[in-house]
Simulated scan of single mutants.
Amino acid sequence: MVALRGQARGAPAPRHGRHGLHGPAPSNLHGRGMEYAESREYVAGDDVRHMDWRLTARSGRAHTKLFQAERERLTLLVADTAPALYFGTRARFKSVQAARAGAVAAWSAVMAGDRVAALRGGEPAIPPASGARGAMRVLDALVRWYAHPPPDDAGLGMALEQAQRLLRPGTRLVVLADPQAASQVPAQRWRALARHREATLVLLQDPLEAMPPRRMLAFAVGKRRVQLALDRGDVRERWEAAFAGPLRMLAQPLPGLGWRVRVLSSDAPVQHGPWAWDGDGAPMAERG
């Protein structure tokens, strides 16, 4: 997980022209910010929209509110821990790939100067922090969450509800999810989460789910052994409805709601992460 730092990429560097830098230079400031700092007496030229009316009424003198400049943007990782993720047929489990993708996202955020935080349904959020300390906190949580299915998983819906209470305008949001779990989330929730934010949904998929063989295939379900005749058309149709159907349900409407949707196979590399951007700000091509 720590070694994946080399696969991360931060914000693009300013472009160079013939005579040096040109265009807007990157800044650590991200606007006025929403953190209240203090109030002081109003002076001519202050924005009347920031008047502290309560203090004005108590003191009899006009006061205005001051806000702490927001120097670091927040990147929030939401980790789905649905039981279906703890499965894999090639290279690694989908849960392990989710942890790897989350690690690259965390390192990318730190390299871009963001604070990084993470949460899952069932426990309090990992608080935001910047630098290596913030990344290591998130990595530790990802290892814990994705090594084994958490016994107290409250579901992706609960995790997204918790995330909505923490998010502010300008936040980067990365959701790591099982397609079937994500397809159960109402469109209204997806729309609200993406409003005024940079939102990416990473859907984890196993190669077997995408391309099952055309033959009889045996599965262990608990202590039972189940065989599926995947060479039969009706069985393959049900298979496709179970695995490809949720992907279609998400990939078609969510971009119109402000989301970037990426499908990440469990055997694909996570170089730069599926949320990476090229130099022109356009989404990078899908990897694997």
Rank of each mutant, 00 (worst) to 15 (best):
V2M: 13
L4P: 02
R5Q: 15
R5C: 09
R5G: 15
G10N: 07
P14W: 07
H16V: 15
G20V: 02
G20K: 05
R32H: 14
A37E: 14
E38Y: 13
Y42K: 09
Y42H: 09
Y42A: 09
V43W: 03
G45F: 06
R49T: 07
M51E: 06
D52F: 00
L55V: 12
S59I: 05
L66N: 09
L74T: 09
L77W: 03
V78Y: 00
A84N: 15
A91C: 08
A91Y: 03
A105Y: 02
W107N: 01
W107S: 00
G121Y: 01
P127G: 05
A129F: 02
S130D: 12
A141R: 02
R144K: 14
A147N: 13
A147L: 15
P150Q: 05
A154M: 13
M158Y: 10
L160A: 02
P169Q: 12
T171N: 15
R172K: 13
V185E: 01
Q188V: 14
R189G: 03
A192Y: 03
L193K: 02
R197D: 13
L203W: 01
L208H: 09
E209K: 07
A210Y: 09
R224F: 00
V226M: 05
R232E: 14
G233D: 14
G233Q: 14
R238Q: 15
W239E: 01
E240I: 08
A244K: 07
A244R: 07
Q252C: 11
P255T: 10
G256I: 11
S265Y: 03
D267L: 04
A268P: 03
P269R: 09
H272S: 11
G273M: 04
A276H: 07
G279A: 13
G281V: 04
P283C: 05
R287L: 15
